[in-house]
């Protein structure tokens, strides 16, 4: 049996939970899902209607509201005896929590897998995706994080799993939630958008970065950025694509004013179609681009908008 640790915000399931269930189903069909939260009944109902989920475990308490990993860990470790695999998405949530669970179970975690070979053998990228390792876990229990963009989301409907309330664990009082600054926008989410428009240091300022966000909005795309653009303060950290940011696999990735360092490529080179706009002939981004345009972005972006509008692909 597999236990999937759901990621949610107490109101809704985070969409990558669906990809995690799909990954789990490649190992075993007997899938239970844990919702640990506060006033999280809606999330349980959502989880219960996922076709591939057999049972929803609901741990409700104010101590789980902010997903503090110190308090979630004992809850999961207590449940672990019933399961062969414990799986969560390799998001900030899963990366924060799962190694704690693994350590207390005395097992090695298998991080960020992109493929399931069998119940104990998995494929994962190493060295920023410059090498692909096939690994076999010899631990009795497997604690795994999955790269969500490497698995399809499973169907969110068609199921009616029972919801079982389970008890809460004690508040360890090691940490307290203080605040959260979330970037709010109407745009599609970076991780799941069909089109991503990303800007780099070539944009030169946060003022100029509006060229990127504006183009993205017109294409109904998500906005991404290189680490250099985030470091320079053009946009927030949640926009960063790459080895130490988010991994995206859109149908179309447009990289503008981004050189294409291996750490950036690690987050986007699996995209279906890659466009690069850069004024430097030698920029390594051109090595992975399906369509490269050697041009000054300050001329190319307005021209691109003009052309897209002319063909009625976007409104001016």
């Amino acid at each position: 049996m597999i236990l999937v640790i759901a990621e949610h915000n107490n109101e809704k399931l985070k969409s990558f939970t669906l990809n995690t269930v799909e990954a789990a189903s490649k190992i075993n069909e007997e899938i239970h899902i844990l919702i640990a939260g506060n006033n999280s009944e809606n999330v349980c109902n959502e989880a219960s209607s996922i076709k591939k989920v057999k049972k929803v475990l609901h741990a409700k308490s104010s101590i789980y509201e902010n997903h503090l990993c110190e308090n979630l860990t004992p809850l999961i470790v207590n449940l672990a005896k019933n399961y062969s695999h414990i799986i969560s998405p390799a998001t900030a949530f899963g990366k924060n929590l799962m190694p704690r669970v693994a350590a207390l179970l005395d097992v090695s975690q298998i991080s960020d897998i992109i493929e399931v070979e069998s119940e104990d053998t998995f494929i994962r990228p190493i060295y920023a995706g410059n090498a692909i390792a096939k690994v076999k876990s010899n631990d009795i229990k497997k604690v795994i994080t999955i790269r969500p963009t490497s698995f399809e989301p499973t169907s969110s409907s068609g199921g009616s799993a029972i919801i079982e309330d389970i008890g809460e664990t004690e508040d360890l009082k090691l940490s307290n939630f203080v605040s959260k600054e979330e970037s709010k926008s109407e745009r599609p989410e970076l991780g799941t958008a069909r089109i991503v428009v990303s800007g780099g240091r070539g944009l030169q300022s946060s003022e100029n970065f509006k060229l990127i966000t504006d183009l993205a909005d017109k294409l109904n795309a998500a906005v991404g950025a290189s680490r250099a653009a985030v470091d320079a303060g053009y946009v927030g950290n949640d926009f960063q694509v790459g080895q130490t940011g988010k991994v995206v696999v859109p149908e179309l990735y447009i990289a503008i004013g981004i050189s294409g360092a291996i750490q950036h490529l690690a987050g986007m080179k699996e995209s279906k179609v890659i466009v690069a706009i850069n004024k430097d002939d030698e920029a390594p981004i051109f090595n992975v681009a399906d369509y490269g345009l050697k041009a000054d972005l300050f001329e190319a972006i307005p021209a691109l908008k003009e052309e897209l509008a002319k063909l009625n692909i976007i409104k001016k």
Partner: peptide, 20 residues
């Protein structure tokens, strides 16, 4: 170690694109 590395391979290469 609890994890055996069975092998390490090159990632798939992208098909070479064009310059427009």
């Amino acid at each position: 170690p609890r994890i055996e590395q069975i092998n390490v391979s090159e990632p798939p290469k992208r098909k070479k694109g064009i310059i427009v």
